[in-house]
């Protein structure tokens, strides 16, 4: 039979994190790496269960109970600081001579290597700890490179969105684009007209049939608007269900009235979503940008907004031109106060 000294020497080479316990639970031999974790104490000779505390399996108070549980995974940690945690396996020695417990740092290996200044010489070549540490560092470096790429892409995406002129949902122009077009038309002094269009009953589609239905309705509504305007005109989505149409060079009230009626008529046709008809309509306020007065975009939008409110007040599905003397709240102001009332 192998003697304790030979066994200890062998274990130092193969399992430097192991301990040999005698029948009374005292440490008879300490692996070289394990001893390195407590340089100020001599571990050999101490009672093992006074040195470490078992967290699993619980309720083990002495060596006999420990020996009765061979092959189960032990979870234990030092009783004193630093309270490094280990995993361990126990193999009993023959004929009641005690047992060998081999320990490993498990997942706490990163902290342990740092806390105890371990080097690759403290782990046998067959131990994968060094490979694990390598992998952790390599993956962290690769992850860092990926994270930087993601950050840069995110920044580029935000910048691109800020510069974009297109409403991504409908493919129409967005508010930014509308502002540019308005500024250009006003600057050039060409006559034009502006319609502010708000979908009626849209909110109830969203509420009862879901956002997917709502998105589909917005896309279909956008398609209808594009079909009703000319190439040189502009359709922009400027809010949730609000649109602005700009008619370049067109200030004929009769024709604009016809266009508005056609738009309302087309939008009132049921839009199918998943076999279900969605019914909406539209209210429209129109303002003409023509005449000697120098206009600004904010005033024009405000006037169109007043006309839209007037249309809404006349019942849904109406169209109104802006007239001097229209006042009261604009549609947008009313809209906001309605929403606040809804919430309240």
């Amino acid at each position: 039979m192998i003697g304790l000294d030979d066994l200890g020497q062998m274990l130092d080479q193969l399992c430097p994190m192991s301990v040999v316990l005698d029948n009374t639970g005292h440490i008879r031999h300490t692996g070289s790496t394990l001893q390195k974790l407590r340089p100020d104490q001599i571990l050999t000779g101490q009672r093992f269960l006074e040195l470490v505390e078992l967290s699993r399996p619980r309720a083990i108070g002495n060596m006999q109970e420990l020996l009765a549980r061979p092959a189960s995974t032990l979870h234990l940690q030092f009783r004193d600081e630093p309270r490094t945690a280990f995993k361990g396996v126990l193999a009993p020695l023959p004929t009641g001579q005690g047992a060998v417990i081999n320990l490993s740092f498990g997942i706490s290996v990163l902290d342990a290597v740092r806390d105890y200044d371990l080097t690759s010489a403290d782990f046998p070549a067959s131990d994968l700890t060094i490979e694990l540490l390598y992998l952790v560092e390599a993956k962290s470096a690769a992850m860092e490179a990926s994270r930087k790429l993601n950050q840069r892409l995110q920044g580029a995406k935000i910048a691109a969105e800020e510069q974009a002129f297109t409403d991504t949902l409908t493919g129409l122009k967005n508010r930014r684009a509308m502002d540019h077009i308005l500024a250009r038309l006003i600057g050039a002094g060409t006559p034009f007209s502006l319609m502010h269009l708000d979908l009626d009953f849209f909110k109830s589609i969203n509420d009862t049939m879901g956002h997917a239905a709502g998105d589909h309705v917005l896309q279909e509504a956008a398609r209808i608007m594009v079909a009703q305007i000319r190439e040189r005109d502009t359709a922009a989505r400027v809010g949730g269900d609000e649109f602005v149409l700009i008619f370049d060079g067109l200030c004929d009230e009769i024709r604009l009235g016809q266009i508005a009626e056609r738009l309302i008529g087309e939008l009132e046709k049921p839009i199918l979503f998943g076999g279900q008809p969605c019914r909406i309509s539209a209210s429209i306020g129109t303002v003409l940008a023509v005449g000697p007065t120098v206009l600004n975009a904010a005033q024009l939008l405000h006037d169109a907004d007043l006309a839209l409110y007037s249309a809404k007040r006349a019942g849904r599905s109406c169209h109104r031109f802006f007239r001097n003397g229209m006042d009261g709240p604009t549609f947008s102001e009313k809209h906001v106060s309605d929403e606040i009332a809804d919430v309240a």
Binding site: R114, D117, L118, T119, I130, L133, E137, S140
Partner: peptide, 11 residues
């Protein structure tokens, strides 16, 4: 002496 290498240094 070379440069020191410490397994546990965090990057």
């Amino acid at each position: 002496e070379g440069r020191s290498f410490d397994l546990g240094t965090r990057i």
